[in-house]
Design a protein around this nucleic acid. Structure first.
Lengths: 227, 227, 227, 227
DNA sequence: CATGAATGAGCCTTCATTCAT
DNA sequence: GATGAATGAAGGCTCATTCAT
């Protein structure tokens, strides 16, 4: 066993009860309009830097200078790299929940809905691939960001679990499957394939990916067309 | 002419990704038994440190002192953290290809085989979870390790693709699926669930995981029992 | 797009000798007066350390502490030992081009001018001997500093070559000599004697050195008095 | 002033009386024939490495492996880099004093002799340029090697001084010149031009260099043809 | 609010030298 | 004689964070 003396994240004892304290230490949102703009410039700059360098190699000084702002100003708005990364992600998440994305997944029977969902997800992932790469990296280092990714996954899974349960109730899906578990599994499949294709660069054509994943998903859950 | 091996700027016409020269810059294996032992002590120590601290937080000085060896000795056997990490993984891979693991997956019809394969994989993953966590982290930083992980995945996928093709030919699996693509997808599903469960700590009982993944796999590929 | 300046492997298509990009990677000059002062303190400290220890034995940490500044501050202003050494030399060069030095070499016929030039050069060299010793050492290690020394020599040689050509045209110097080559040779003679005397400690009285070198120079070029 | 604590060569007090102690700490010459051969292999290897890497960048481990000998063996024959470099130089000096070199400089009047001497020197220098580059570098770091270079220069200068004195006595050279000083100066000129041309790469054709230096030399000393 | 100079702990890496076999 | 594993001091460099202006 290594005789650690250095404080590693894993060793820090103040993990519990961090939930609602999440927002505690954060810097207050800027009061003035100028502050608003500076904060936004920083977030935009951070996104560019994270996309270009990844999470680990991004330096706060890079982000600051990319935003044409002094290092000191950075600390007016954020306490750490993790914090601004979270801010960047929030902005992106917002765009993922835009109505037009959801709308696309309604109507046309369960299979069409699944396909629409997959297509929307994969398009979103492809568009944000560089950032997802940074997130994947960040999640291996930072507890908070790991948690953030987990929650995002949970939300997805719960949503899908609900759909599955509905289909089961309507006799349109394999009733022997635990809805949440199954949802997690298919999400894992789609998510990881997206990662492989758009982050790692596996060379799979978009439509092929969509239809293959949809077919496997439908098969896996034994989805039947509504009629 | 001296046959220099040290990388002098003047000698280096190409910088990156020497492909098959992968093994080029590596330190020679120790000539004496004593050297062998030291090298092994280092690998064992490295494994403990990586498991405890993860890839990024592991310090070479930790590994050295964990092995009761001076820093200098580390560099007698390895050039970098990446290199010793590769050595640790090689050792682990070896254990994964032990005959008894393969044996477990033979006989009893396709479904039983799939279940046996999944069970073996998940057991192996659970046993090496800390290291897999380190690998996942390392792969986000280091090109070589990313490549190593990719190759490992490819090998898995190709093996499974072959099984799928055989089953298709025997009329026991959905003939519309591209075998390699499908293999990649189910592998992604199983691999990512293993990661979620044993690295991130999702609380899913082992047997439940095995049977759920097996069922989804079987469904997804429309596997039929051999009779 | 972030306009990255940090050398990331991916960004570096060419590695060496960026030629006119010489000034590229340099740290920006300090914006504030305080920064100016710190930078100057560092240069002054560096000069003392280089003079005391030579180029190779000078440690950046020595320079920093000699300037009563942290190591980190060193890197705010300079990227390397080579860079600060260049800065020290620039300061010294400036002092060498002061008008009074040039003025001393005008009037009194060619021989008097040559003598004045030699005297001025040798005085300057004697005063900066410790630094010249460091430069001579540095030039054997660092390509940039070697180049810098070469340019300095070229400038000298060209200036002298012009004088020689003029004298040849006025029939006051051996017309068979290639002016530039001859200038280089006599410069080599004077320069190397200065090195031997003031760096290596050859024991030659100043005036003796001046008159001997002047006489050899005059002889070598067959300089005639203007009358 | 930097407050040095580290022992720098300049600080070491035991400089005096080092003369005859020069050979003191040296390893004994090998008794066996095998030892002889190993020692010679090391010297030959060292020469290659010094020529390729320069003095500073040459590592003892490089020299050893280039000689197909273990590091340990190196220390059987030499105590340090400086020591083996001296051994390499000795071998080279021997070749410089070969009779045929001296022979070439006899007969044909003083000017022809001077030209022959210059030609022989420049040829020798050109052939050993890489080593001279290493020597020049070594001399800036190591007191002993600096001394060695100085002695070599002194020997040259004394020899030339004798010639000059003879010519002066025969009325064939400027009687106002101090022979030793003048010899040093012309040697400095020739030596430095050789360095510039063959080490730094100044592009001057060999014969042009010979004739130019000879002419300047002859002019400088006001050499008259014997009749 | 904004600035940017100053900090320094911390980690990596090198290589001459020793010594048990 | 020969070997090569073991050593560890030493120095370079980074970058998150603070704070006086």
């Amino acid at each position: 066993m290594p005789s650690r003396s250095r404080p590693t994240s894993a060793d820090t004892p103040h993990d519990v009860a961090a939930d609602e304290a999440d927002t505690a230490g954060q810097r207050p949102l800027p009061a003035t309009a100028r502050g608003q703009r500076t904060r936004e410039r920083l977030i935009a700059a951070a996104r560019r830097v994270f996309e270009h360098d990844g999470y680990l190699d991004a330096r706060l000084s890079d982000i600051s200078s990319e935003a044409n702002v002094s290092v000191g100003s950075f600390y007016v708005y954020f306490n750490s790299k993790e914090e601004i990364f979270t801010a960047v992600l929030e902005q992106v998440q917002d765009s993922a929940l835009h109505p037009h994305v959801r709308a696309a997944t309604r109507g046309g029977g369960p299979i069409a809905e699944i396909e629409a969902g997959n297509r929307a997800y994969l398009m979103w992932y492809r568009r944000n691939a560089r950032l997802m790469r940074a997130l994947e990296q960040a999640a291996t280092c930072d507890e908070n960001l790991r948690e953030l990714r987990r929650k995002r996954g949970e939300a997805f899974a719960r949503r899908n679990a609900r759909s599955i349960r509905e289909l089961q109730e309507r006799g349109l899906a394999d009733p022997d499957l635990d809805p949440l578990l199954a949802a997690k599994a298919v999400d894992a499949m789609v998510g990881r394939m997206a990662y492989g294709t758009y982050v790692l660069g596996d060379d799979i054509p978009f439509e092929e990916l969509v239809s293959m994943l949809t077919r496997l998903w439908v098969n896996a859950l034994k989805i039947k067309t509504g009629r």
